[in-house]
Design a protein around this nucleic acid. Structure first.
Lengths: 67, 67
DNA sequence: TAAATATTTATCGTAAAACAATAAATTTTT
DNA sequence: AAAAATTTATTGTTTTACGATAAATATTTA
């Protein structure tokens, strides 16, 4: 399974969902769903915005775990 | 921008596109497009299959580069 | 270098899913 | 308890993956 670790990065950056939302320019509902792994796909443009806002790499946000 | 490094992983694993296609169970046309960065989004289920087939992490496949 | 094989590109159609807008529910903070 | 933040839910629109297929191109092999 693929795990989304946006929450981990938010904690590291001491950033709120509201703040992240402003930076990426999506609706808060949307950001919340991504953060909580409620999406089945992700646009690369969105991943790019997340990486830019959180100053990190896709690998910091996405994780693969067997089983 | 987000760069897709499936080609790098294929080289590391000495694996062909045909072989990868069989492992992930998508059409070859599709795998080829992903490999060559011709997609604008990716399903997490597909990313998962790629990671499993290439025995790697999302971070090995996806890379964020500024500008 | 000709043939075979592998890969890429293109087109069309369908299904999946992001995302916006909005509102309500829930949780957290003050 | 009130305010603020976050999550969840609903509906509609738009985007895009992905399949099927075929053609074009590139690569490998005999």
């Amino acid at each position: 399974m693929i795990i989304i670790n946006v929450d981990v990065m938010l904690a590291k950056r001491k950033m709120s969902v509201t703040e992240l939302t402003e930076l990426v320019g999506l609706t808060m509902a949307n950001v919340s769903q991504i953060k909580n792994g409620k999406v089945k796909a992700i646009k690369l443009s969105t991943l790019e915005k997340l990486c830019a806002a959180l100053n990190c790499q896709p690998g910091d946000i996405l994780e693969y775990r067997r089983q």
